[in-house]
Design a binder for these strands. Structure first.
Lengths: 108, 108
DNA sequence: CTTATATATCAATTTTTTTTGATTTAACAA
DNA sequence: TTGTTAAATCAAAAAAAATTGATATATAAG
């Protein structure tokens, strides 16, 4: 009996989203800061609004980050569960929220 | 004291290499078969020689696979250590050599 | 209602990546 | 040496992704 060949479309999408230094920095910043609105991210990265929106959408579509709307503000945060399912412990430690780092994890 | 911001260039490169369904399939096939020469991969994927070479080079440059030359043949294989350092256990199981799957791993 | 603010979306352009076919390199066999 | 095979590399073309500036949408405030 042969193992069924997995379909990699979904992973392609997720890795594409991660395949950009700017987006990795966004992910890292979201971990460090938790829920952050677009305007703050704009300041942090000194990047135009539409460009930032574009990159956030790619991460969002890959389900690596989450969005919460409050009035006119949109707050983004890391989707830690999804990241943990995808990346190694070592890497998850980079993309793990500050408050969770000191805990009972084997790594970090 | 603030955490030093990691540089993500290296990860960008690795994720770029993974951000392609064809290359993920190559990785999977290498796990299933172990050391495999380019000509066999050409048959398996029904893809042109130069195209395959191109994709193998990207994976090789990202250090996700390894190359061994014997005469005119080049054999490629997964770089399991590197993959384990990068990806979650769940994903490593997809990209783990058949002979290592039945063992004492917590997953698979 | 009018205005202002936050953010998403769109269309055109630029940049990057991928594909293709041809050429090159290197090892081997006759 | 000559011919053959495996595989890398190159240059041009095609396709995909990113950037830019403008516009649209939606909420909130006056």
């Amino acid at each position: 009996m042969e193992a069924v060949k997995p379909t990699f479309q979904l992973y392609e999408k997720k890795f594409k989203a991660l395949a950009d230094e700017k987006r990795l920095e966004i992910m890292y910043e979201l971990c460090q800061r938790g829920k952050t609105c677009v305007c703050d991210l704009m300041e942090i990265f000194g990047v135009s609004q539409s460009k930032l929106s574009y990159h956030l959408k790619i991460l969002l579509d890959a389900n690596l980050i989450e969005k919460e709307t409050k009035g006119t503000w949109n707050y983004y945060d890391i989707n830690e569960k999804e990241v943990n399912n995808l990346l190694s412990e070592e890497l998850c430690c980079i993309f793990r929220k500050v408050e969770n780092k000191a805990g009972n994890n084997s790594c970090c």
